[in-house]
Design a protein around this nucleic acid. Sequence first.
DNA 1: AAGTGTGAAGTCTTTCACAGCT
DNA 2: AGCTGTGAAAGACTTCACACTT
Lengths: 228, 228
Amino acid sequence: MGSATERRGIPDATVTRLPEYLRALTSLADTGVTSVSSEELATVVGVNSAKLRKDLSYLGSYGVRGVGYDVTHLSDQISSALGLTRDQAVAIIGMGNLGRALAAYNGFASRGVEVVALLDHDPAVIGSRIAGLTVEPVADLPRITSEREVTIAMLATPAGSAQEVADLVVAAGITAILNFAPTSLELPADVQVRKVDLATEVQILAFHAQQSRLGGLPAEPVLTEAVQ
Amino acid sequence: MGSATERRGIPDATVTRLPEYLRALTSLADTGVTSVSSEELATVVGVNSAKLRKDLSYLGSYGVRGVGYDVTHLSDQISSALGLTRDQAVAIIGMGNLGRALAAYNGFASRGVEVVALLDHDPAVIGSRIAGLTVEPVADLPRITSEREVTIAMLATPAGSAQEVADLVVAAGITAILNFAPTSLELPADVQVRKVDLATEVQILAFHAQQSRLGGLPAEPVLTEAVQ
DNA sequence: AAGTGTGAAGTCTTTCACAGCT
DNA sequence: AGCTGTGAAAGACTTCACACTT
């Protein structure tokens, strides 16, 4: 995956967890909590507390020994490490069912994500209004990207056109893609791609479901314990 | 823990990749390819060929030295390893934007996933038809689960009610959950949970986007190479 | 000649366990 | 007394490189 050549290098595994810590901290702050120990926060997120402390140590020393972490300060530090000092401007491409659901998703605003453009190449959809935005033609992507400082594209096209659209996205100067199309993209190494494939997720669950069926009841005591 | 039980321990990392291999194989089969080498398949999926071979070796020896893998046979073996010999019956809970998009998603059928129930607890939504199914009350989950042999639940509720609904899901006898609500669930260890958090994905991308901005051009030769 | 299957080496990640600070 | 921060150990995963098979 993405290798960081930095002396400052935060491990990839840590980066993927930082957003979860941030979400948990925000939720704690909302309930009036101002200070939290690694043990408490780890329980909320469902990870080992040593792992949490090590993750945070990559950002610097923001805890107080004997006390814990200041919720607000730690949130700020994580936000800053993630580069969320400004909202991320996102363009959604492909206005099918999924694209429309993404456009209407209201979980983004509070977490530093702003949808600034909706695109499609079907003339029947272009010009219609979805979630307060007007759908624009994919051909306008270069202009839109520079005008609205788009940093991330969400690809919600059919698998068949995903590669083609991804190439346009990269040509428009966007270097981060969240790919919902069930296909692998071939792109330059400096373009970050993460994928969300729903059927893949279900198949992974199917495997584990099958395992517990086969493994059955024998041996293995089942403790109620936060996992993952 | 690691007792001598002869169950084939397929590593987690491998399991998460099997669905992708399967997807790539299906796509190759559709274009008439009948045999494929690890190098070719690895290129399509975007992984190292040694990793692919090692992954496949956990399933058994299905390749032919000097030749490669039979596309159909390998697909069958992976399907079988994943437990996809039957379709997975899925219930979607929470008929907001996301739930409706999931219900209407047409990428499931061809990949062994069948949506057999849509549930909500809002009386205003219950009874309406979405994507050919009638929305039913969450209270009916236990009956529906046993009647339709539901194995997996997709949670598309707001974060606030996710834990509560997850508890109902588990009580109904379902042991695998795909959680789209942006919150961590506390569940018994024998329940498999995978989560899909859209804002988290964007934040991870934001981090990497920031890195390339900071790191700039120096060092780091950029090879065009399939990543992810 | 080509390409699999796999020990062994290398890298990354998690967990332990405790010194050290408040 | 309590909890962080972190070396060191353990474990998981990836990649190399080549013996072996067709």
